[in-house]
Simulated scan of single mutants.
Amino acid sequence: MTLHLPDAHGTLRPYEPRTEPFAPTPGAPLTSRTVFSAAHVVADPYADTTPDSPAAVDWDATLAFRHHLWSHGLGVAEAMDTAQRGMGLDWAGAAELIRRSAAEAKAVGGRIACGVGTDQLTGGTLADIRAAYEEQLAVTEESGAQAVLMASRALAATAQGPDDYLEVYGHLLRQSAEPVILHWLGPMFDPALEGYWGSSDLDAATGTFLEVIAAHPDKVDGIKVSLLDARREVDLRRRLPRGVRCYTGDDFHYPELIAGDEQGFSHALLGIFDPLGPLAAEAVRVLDTGNTEGFRTLLDPTVALSRHLFRAPTRFYKTGVVLLAWLAGHQSHFTMVGGLQSARSLPHLARAYELADGLGLFPDPKLAEERMRTLLHLYGVTP
């Protein structure tokens, strides 16, 4: 049945939903690339909370979604930006999420890496920042998960220059039990991270970042780069020490970066692989056979959806991710931690639905259509 979707100009236009989904099935483990999906959290819709309250999480639905990702051979990047770290999920909630998800990963043999930051702080000295990182690193390592050292708002606000970053990260890498993933999150994802690594000049910042890695290559499994700049990522990965991986976090250019070139390729740690999980895994399995063209044929058409979800202000991409999880039947409601379901407009959400439906992302297109119709009605759209 026809849906009438509002466009960016407020005009309703007819859309005929897809009737058959793209139906990849879980298959062999991925071999040619290491691929993590940064996963969202499912809010408890019955909790009596306010935007300033600690997050109320539906643990059953949240963990079930992780099992969905593991079943397709993807790793889970836990308690990161996609899980609303710093945008509704505080450190207490993140710590619980890390413990629970790591236990589930161990039970099923799933791969997991967890975000380590300083979000229990609102300010402080470099010593305070080191201590906050250490607390979170201990929780992650004790859970048995790999650590992702996330960019710190507190460090961005406190550091006086590159030397402070070298000191803090050097301290953490020397004491980490296992190699970690370093995370460079650009200010388009979090404006508070402007000037990270001691400079707003990205060339200078890259130099400091590489200096940290060069001093401790045995403690760095890889880097996750989220700058939405493919050229810079390629240049950076070519300058990494041997054995240090580049995990693309570029939600605009991921097919070409994962496919790579004659000098190398990127692995992946991506928020867009939350809604794209099964399709992304299928594409990487094709790449595992050496069929780069087939990989690009599957994954290239998804870029329009990703660019839409991650358009400025990019940090609100989580709203579209959770919308698609609801439409796909992975959760029973469109409610988010901190009320963030209101962060995108109805035309934006309608376009996200249309693009995802066109890709066949919904296992049950009829359910997705019915839920989208319900959302439209709540906004006052009538046939």
Rank of each mutant, 00 (worst) to 15 (best):
A8M: 13
L269A: 12
W197S: 03
T50H: 15
T319G: 05
A79D: 01
G109Y: 07
Q331S: 06
R174K: 13
R371W: 10
E211G: 07
S71L: 04
D44S: 14
L340Q: 15
D235G: 09
G115M: 06
R351P: 00
S266V: 06
F189Y: 15
A56T: 01
L240P: 00
W59A: 05
W197N: 03
G264Y: 06
G271F: 04
M188C: 08
R315W: 03
C114W: 03
T49F: 08
A177N: 13
G88D: 07
T289A: 09
G110I: 09
G339F: 09
Q263H: 15
S32Y: 11
T50P: 07
A192T: 14
A102I: 03
A154L: 06
F316D: 11
L149M: 05
L257D: 05
P162M: 10
A61M: 04
L305F: 02
Y15D: 03
S37I: 08
D261R: 13
A145Q: 01
G109M: 10
R296G: 08
P26D: 12
F310V: 01
L137G: 02
R239I: 02
G195W: 04
W184A: 10
V168R: 05
L166E: 05
T140M: 02
T11P: 00
L185Y: 04
G358I: 00
P29S: 15
C246E: 11
L324C: 08
R373C: 14
K366C: 11
L298D: 00
P51C: 06
D250T: 08
H183F: 15
H183L: 12
L63K: 09
L69S: 06
H171Y: 07
D218E: 15
L349N: 11
T248G: 00
W91I: 11
S200T: 15
P29G: 12
E256G: 10
T382Q: 15
P301H: 00
A131R: 13
L349K: 10
V225N: 06
L74V: 03
Q84N: 14
V35L: 05
D251L: 08
D128S: 09
V286L: 03
A102K: 05
Q136H: 14
L3A: 01
G86E: 12
A23V: 09
T82G: 03
Y379G: 07
R174N: 14
L30K: 14
A105V: 09
I272S: 15
R130D: 11
Q160M: 11
F273H: 09
L287A: 05
T62L: 04
S332Y: 03
L30G: 13
L309A: 11
P255N: 11
G75A: 13
G320M: 10
D218H: 12
V225Y: 14
A304C: 04
G277E: 08
V116Y: 09
D250C: 10
T297D: 06
R307Q: 14
E354R: 09
A192E: 11
G186N: 03
G338M: 04
S266F: 06
A259E: 13
F209T: 01
T82C: 05
E16W: 00
R111P: 10
R85V: 10
P275T: 02
G222L: 01
Q146H: 12
R315H: 05
A102H: 08
I181M: 05
V225M: 11
G161K: 13
I181H: 00
S332Q: 15
L236Y: 02
F273I: 01
L149H: 01
A304E: 15
A79K: 03
R85P: 00
H333F: 08
L276D: 07
A77V: 01
G198M: 07
A215M: 01
A79H: 02
A28N: 07
E16C: 00
